[in-house]
Design a protein around this nucleic acid. Structure first.
Lengths: 141, 141
DNA sequence: ATAAACCCGAGTAAAATAGTCAAGTATCAT
DNA sequence: ATGATACTTGACTATTTTACTCGGGTTTAT
């Protein structure tokens, strides 16, 4: 049970962006340097974030990215969804309402995995980008 | 962010074991058939569970496994630990108390990942095997 | 004696991850 | 105009992890 770099980096990069999100757009190059994430990889990630309208891009010199919504309105769940960071605890989820794996009844642990998935999802639904940067009034990288 | 089969199967198999844990030991063959998990794979898993003293083995014909503690005392966290299902949200955890990745300060999202890890771990610390089978008075596979 | 079970370590195919690389296009500053 | 900066896109790939399988054991009830 682990977080992939895609999800982690997306959040790190957006936290960085939110922090420096003044009038000027923030370039991926800057984020790359500050957060130590490869530029090429960041480009992949931001492509997805842009398609899901979490950020806006500004091309050309002095260009970069800006948040497309208020930091408060961007929840971690939105970020994870955008970069395909799935929360997947169960394999039999898509089966029919009643049964798992083709059987007529639910598997013994079905509700457990559902509950776990909800537990984790809840966390991501609550936390916003704003929470991240508010918690970080002390100087951080 | 997903659960591996090792963790999932371990819990499924132990739930099955707990359910049929009467006087007689339960063979992996039976668990394999009921839960649809390969026998070879189950053997790997139970080897670890035995080494962590979650189950006891009884060799020979009519042998099998029994729980080594009361179902109430076996928490999911113990099971996951036994089969090396790690809960890993952060990469910079092992760095010094204050800084991440060799830098003198914590990374922006450090506390977030810590909090997430705690959130998930808490869930696994609360849930016991007994909870699983108690929740399943209705007939299940 | 035999079969049912546990025990153990090595090996491996497939999938997922974590990127890199190449070739663009848009825009600004000068 | 032109060069530099920065976004855009899609393909490619090495490494790691996962999810097993396989082949040999040993123990014990009947």
């Amino acid at each position: 049970m682990k977080l992939t770099t895609k999800g982690r980096y997306a959040v790190m990069a957006l936290a960085d962006l939110a922090r420096f999100n003044n009038i000027n757009p923030v370039s991926l190059r800057d984020i790359s340097l500050r957060q130590g994430i490869s530029l090429d990889y960041l480009e992949q990630i931001f492509s997805k974030l842009r398609k899901k309208e979490i950020v806006q891009s500004i091309r050309g010199t002095q260009g970069g990215y800006i948040l497309n919504k208020k930091a408060k309105e961007i929840k971690l769940i939105n970020i994870f969804e955008a970069v395909d960071e799935k929360i997947k605890t169960v394999q039999c989820k898509k089966e029919s309402k009643k049964g798992c794996n083709g059987k007529p009844t639910k598997c013994l642990t079905h509700d457990l995995w559902d509950e776990l998935e909800n537990h984790i999802t809840y966390f991501f639904e609550q936390k916003s980008l704003e929470d991240l940067i508010k918690d970080n009034l002390t100087r951080r990288v």
